[in-house]
Amino acid sequence: MAQFLQTVVSGLALGSIYGSLALALVLIYKATEVINFAQGEMAMFTTYISWALITHHGMSYWPAFFVTLLIAFAGGIGLQTVVVRPLARASVLTVVMATIALLVILNGAAAWIWSPQLQFYPSPFPTSSWVIGGVHISKQDAGTFGVVAACVVVLALFFRFTKLGLAMRAGALNPAAARLMGVRTSLLLALGWGFAAVLGAVSGMMVAPTFFLTPNMMQAVLIYAFAAAVLGGLESPVGAVTGGVLLGVMLNLITQYVTFVTPDLQLPVALGILLVVLLIRPSGLLGRAVVRRV
């Protein structure tokens, strides 16, 4: 039983990371119907920035963390403005290709600037653990979960209670009507990319202590995030986070208890889960039935 709970808890931490990146994907998808394939590499790149701030510029962890979030925010807005906005009237496929180009560029740039070598990335949390009723809960896992949860809650409050957040939701639901209310939707799209970049940066900085820092660090995480977003339904922010947490716990349990599934098989299993879920519920677990556009 203790073993089981421990597996669940560490799955929660990993799952929250998938969930936050999935949420970033959903933010952009809801507003523009574009899947941002560069989301993982944006996260990786900003994580390198935080690493450089800590190791080369002598900042301590938390200041570097917050400075990185600011940089990520500005970077997300910049990328949307420079790369995506000029393609506003291009086909969805062209925009998707542009995000793939961005993926390639960021991946190359990180290797170019910081070398492709594996780097150790510091964790802000102690490596010790609490023992509650025989269950070891690593402070690392708890901290990760807490940081991600805090970010998601702050974002949820923003969308629920601020005028800007409301306008972003309205703009995603019906951009034409929102513009009639005086909403500058193109600015809000850039803002959405900024928030997505911040969420990505959080997931990157939380994953780096366990996965180590390399330019390819986020590839697998991005795929899990995709799976999480699809599980929850691409239209649903709550679903994305739930999907991420579920996937994290499920994969941890499967690797723990099904001996046939080694870590190498985690991704194929995730892909299998994804396909099965989509077969049963084509718009995800929490997604509404999508009325396809003719």
């Binding site: 790369v83 290709m97 542009a98 560029i105 190359g108 740039a109 290797a111 070398s115």
Partner: peptide, 19 residues
């Protein structure tokens, strides 16, 4: 000759072509 430099160039070419 740095690693990654080729990727950057090819990504940029792709972007330019898309535009």
């Amino acid at each position: 000759h740095a690693p990654g430099s080729g990727l950057v160039v090819y990504g940029l070419i792709l972007l330019v072509v898309l535009y």
